[in-house]
Structures are given as C-alpha cells and as structure tokens.
Nucleic acid binder design. Structure first.
Lengths: 225, 225
DNA sequence: ATGCGCTTCAAACGTATGTTTCAAACAGAC
DNA sequence: GTCTGTTTGAAACATACGTTTGAAGCGCAT
C-alpha cells in the first residue's frame, strides 16, 4: 500500500506499529518486515531507531503545526482584536487535527494515539525533540487559553490546563481500546471525530468551573492550606 | 530503606522504577540492583516479570479497594437511600486515595502514575489481571457515577468517565514534575491534597457539562453522525 | 552436630534487540 | 559499455534481556 518508496514504506509501517504497541515494544524487525524492506534500510535512511521515531512525528506534526497556525490566524482575525473564547480556541485545535489530510482511514486515530504516547511514555529524547521543534504553536495555544480565561488565577489556570492535557492525551492514547470496549459493551460505533466532539464540551466546562475548592462536602478531611 | 525483607525490597524498587519508566523500559536487572538483591530472586519469589508487575499492583490496590468499599458504604449510609451526588462520590474516591497509608512521600503519585500506565501501556496481561481482581469496586464506582448523572446517556457517561480518568491519572502521575514547574514559574507551593481539591471541581463540572456537541461554533465542519 | 527446607548467589542459557559490515544490485551520466 | 554514487541484501556483531541452573549458605527442629 502507499508508495513503493522505501522511506515512506518504513514510515507507514513504523507509524502504525508505534501507535499500536508503543515505541519500545516495536522492534525494527517488526517494522521492516511489515514494510517489506531490508532491516538495514532503517539505519541507512534514518540513522537510528530514535531518529526514525522523530521522523514519524515530524511527518505529521510539521504540516499539523502549519495548519494550526493558520487556524489560529483565521480565528484571531475573525475576532478582530477581541480574544477568542475558550470554546473557539478548543474547536480551532480539534478541527485542525480532524481536518488534516489523512493517509488512510486510521490516520486521525494514529495521530492522536502517537501524541498521547509522546506525552505518556517518558522517552526523554522525544520530549526534547518535540519541545524544540514545535514550541511555537504550543506557546501560542497557551497564550490563547490565558486570554480566554481571564477570570482564573495563574495557578488555577495552570492546573486546569494540565487536567485538559491529561484528559486529552490519555483518552486519545487509548482511544482504540476504549472504542472497542464501548463497541462490545453497548454495541456503539464511535469515530474519533465524535470523541473529540464529546471531549471539547467536557474540557470547556471543567476549565470554567466555579471554584468549589474551599467547600468540600461535610465530613471531608481534606485540608487546603 | 523500608524493611530488609527481599520480597518487599523488590516490590519497592519495582514500583518506583515502573512508575518512573514504564514496564518494558524497566529491566529486572535495574530492579534487582536498585533493591540490592540477586537477579534470580525475582523469578524465585514471583515466578516471572509479569507476575512481579501483578504483585506490585496487588500490594497497593488490594488495601485501596478495601478502603474504597468502606468509604462507599459510609457514603451510601449517610445518604440513606438517596443516591449520593457526583461531588460526594468523587470526594469519597479522592479521600480514600489521599488517606491511604503511604510507604513514603511519593506514595500517592506513584500510585496514580501506575494506574495511568496500566491503562495506557497496552499490556494485555495487566488489563486482564486488574479486571478480574478488582472488578467489584470498579463497577460499584461506575454504578454510583451512573446514579449521580441520570441525565447523561450511557455513551456520554462512558466517555466522560474516560476523560475524568485521564485528567486524574495524567496529572497525578506527573504531579511531582508539575509541582516543580509551578514552584519555579510562579513561586507557589502545592500539596497533592490541593491538587485533588482543584481536580474534583474540574471533573464535576466537565461531567455535568451541557452537551454542546451538536452546535459547534460557526464555520465548523465537524460532523457528528 | 546433623539433616532439612528455604533462600541466596554467581554463572550461564537462549533469544531478541539495535547496529554495522561489505558485497551485490541498481540507476544515470558520459 | 563503463564508471560512479546510491541503494539494497544477507549475514554477522555486540549487547541486553528474561529465565534457568546447581551449588552454597542459612535458620532451626531434632
């Protein structure tokens, strides 16, 4: 499938296997045999397994960050000065993800799963790579979030952003498994787009929650300094 | 540190290393050298690496599930018939987690991180083990959530529970790092209890969000079947 | 003191991994 | 056709892994 070019075949196979099984659990031999390519081809074309992982991310993250920049540009223009709302910002993000040109029907879920893995698996080299390659759209997203939630203190906002990231990364990183469970338990089919569409309102509501922190229910012993 | 019993030393070292690096990325040799124990001791006492993973989970999950059952009993009794609210249910859970006797100051965050890994890393054997060992408190929590959110459809509720799990596991699993960042950036100290106290309102609000799914903002092309 | 479980130990086993090697095959320019 | 730089191929490399082995050490009842 795809092109018969060795580099692309390796990237396709690696992408899918990484998404399915994680990085350490995927060997170069799995990748090359799935790609129907000689084992040495990976080291020849990419240099090392880590460099292959970077290449897999770069292939979809580079166009995605461009799309995202455009979406943010358009959004800020449409708001003409006023800061975009939280909902608008979150939708801009998810739409950019969903609208990305996909290599195949699994494209978006592989995309999400890889992003989740990047956060979850503590691969030092990966985090470093992502931070220095894609810090700009990330900071911009953070700035938009800040402007969209002026009522929050810096500390509150900080933690709630972590909660959002967590819900997203976690859900997306196991979205296939979760979809399967839902399919078996309730007989419901779900697309990634639907998951995203359910996630956004959840996040927005959580982000804008009234802060009930200081009044836990009666009987609680949790103390807040 | 801890007792000088081999089994416990292995469990302590394994727990910490697993939480830091994941399961596949942690070798038995790392564990045994951290525990200052002979390599063969793991297979002697536990049988295999997978069995060791199970033992690590069992050691904290068994007392925790007992504590949780008690908390739920007490909660349901206090509500005398009426289903507990979402806030009450979530507080019962987080208090049980926070109040668990900790082996050390990192206890709660290791606990969370391991739970997150269990969900995230696609270790088939682990998921099977957890499902058949701890299905009861899990189902009970699910039932309480269901009764506390009768307005949600089963599918909505399912996904929102995943979102909650994700936000919790992710945040708690990296809470040390996140606390440090906050300390450096804003000069604010934070305890795990405070994080929990911020998390619960976020989760409750997300869980009870109005379902804006079908009315994404103008310009959106996300379609929901 | 002896014998008997249980536990520890150093060493090895077999297998799988990422990487390297070097010859063969190939493509395009002259 | 021949040369040149690039790509593929089969094989080997060194290393790391989980697991097994068999002897040594230990505590304790007899």
């Amino acid at each position: 499938m795809a092109q018969s070019d060795t580099v692309d075949r390796i990237l396709d196979a690696a992408e899918e296997l990484f998404a399915d099984r994680g990085f350490s659990e995927t060997s170069l031999r799995m990748i090359t045999s799935k790609a129907k390519v000689n084992l040495a081809a990976v080291n020849y074309h990419f240099g090392s397994k880590n460099a292959l992982i970077h290449a897999v991310f770069a292939r979809f993250l580079t166009p995605f960050s461009a799309t995202l920049e455009n979406a943010f540009d358009e959004l800020e223009e449409r708001c003409s000065g006023k800061p975009p709302t939280l909902n608008q910002t979150l939708w801009a993000l998810t739409e950019s993800a969903v609208r990305m040109p996909q290599r195949n029907e699994k494209g978006i879920s592989i995309f999400m799963r890889l992003l989740g893995l990047a956060y979850t698996q503590s691969q030092g080299h990966l985090r470093k790579f992502l931070e220095q390659e894609y810090s700009e759209p990330f900071s911009r997203f953070m700035r938009l979030l800040k402007e969209a939630t002026p009522q929050l203190s810096s500390v509150d906002r900080y933690w709630r952003i972590q909660f959002m990231l967590g819900a997203t990364a976690f859900t997306m990183s196991s979205s296939d498994a979760l979809r399967d469970i839902l399919q078996n338990k309730l007989g419901v089919e779900t697309t990634v787009q639907e998951i995203a569409a359910r996630l956004v309102p959840f996040l927005a509501a959580g982000m804008q929650a009234e802060d009930a922190m200081l009044i836990p229910p009666a009987g609680s012993k949790v103390s807040v300094a």
